[in-house]
Write a protein that binds this DNA or RNA. Structure first.
Lengths: 170, 170
DNA sequence: ATACTTGCAAATCTTTTGCATCGTT
DNA sequence: AACGATGCAAAAGATTTGCAAGTAT
């Protein structure tokens, strides 16, 4: 595992190269946003990025969006859907991002699975160069499952009672 | 592969059971939205679902959102991010959804990979019951790659010329 | 000097919410 | 009759766009 600072330097190099190749400009805003991302590890919405930046730097929302887009294009951040929102996260040094998502309660849990990561390498991608992997496994978490079981049992009991009452009446 | 009609019947049964278990109501709107999803195979945004429904049925946006949420909770539809938007798609009968996404141009390509699907079965999920898998492999497609190469070559040529001119001057 | 970037504000689009009403159960 | 679900409209949130101004190259 690379150190944060080391990662950030590597990422800056990728950005610099892309900027040069595409005759774009080096702006302090861009670097500031990138740096912020690499110093903290959370998933952030564009708005949250904006809020954090605002405190330490003059930036506009549009700039944040522009640069998130750029970072995404360069594979420097990943985008993950969470709570109906797109979130961004620095990803260099971690090629894969795996999580389970409970579709009932929304509970999200990250997991690591080296063999699964290897399986992605085994895929024959047609004319495509893989950089990142984001995989979400959707399903039902244990507490939502037991809740469903509880409800079912309750219903079954009620049904039994109803059946009994019917018998009595007739 | 199940037939569409068969799939739709199976899905209706799941919905009916959930509705009963949770003392919810059977409404024609709900069924109409579900049916629409199972008759067409596209990825749709909530707005698109609303637009389609509007033509054949009186529904409100809120109802569409409510029911998409419900279908999602039940694993009847999957949610995938595309072009900065959340899209929904009927998923019963296809447990996994794999795609490559070019982060430069946004080009998306679905792929099938049975071995990869198997690898997800091999993961030990902690207290979690898997229902669907959505995996996105981000990277650079071949045309974006060659474009970058072209630009790089052009820059290298320019650099050579500059170096030559400098020599001449001195 | 050029034209890429930014900031700002407005426009657009998406999603959620409040409330009266409807209709299943 | 109760109360979940809907429609409608308004509110809230997220993202994009247009334009003038600033600034790397």
């Amino acid at each position: 595992m690379m150190e944060k600072e080391e990662r950030y330097q590597a990422v800056k190099a990728i950005l610099a190269r892309y900027i040069q190749e595409n005759r774009m400009r080096n702006t302090p805003e861009r670097l500031a946003i990138l740096e912020m991302f690499y110093l903290q590890e959370e998933l952030l919405t564009a708005q949250e990025v904006y809020d954090i930046m605002k405190e330490r730097f003059v930036v506009s929302r549009a700039t944040v969006y522009n640069n998130l887009q750029l970072f995404y294009a360069l594979g420097l951040v990943i985008r993950v859907e969470e709570d109906n929102q797109l979130k961004y996260k620095a990803c260099f040094g971690e090629r894969e991002f795996f999580r389970t998502v409970c579709t009932r309660c929304g509970r999200i849990q990250r997991f690591v699975a080296p063999n699964l990561a290897l399986a992605f390498d085994g895929v024959k991608y047609k004319r495509f160069h893989m950089e990142q992997i984001v995989a979400s496994v959707y399903g039902v978490c244990s507490s939502c499952q037991s809740k469903a079981t509880r409800i079912r049992k309750k219903l079954e009991k009620e049904d039994e009672l109803k059946a009994l009452n019917k018998k009595k009446k007739s």
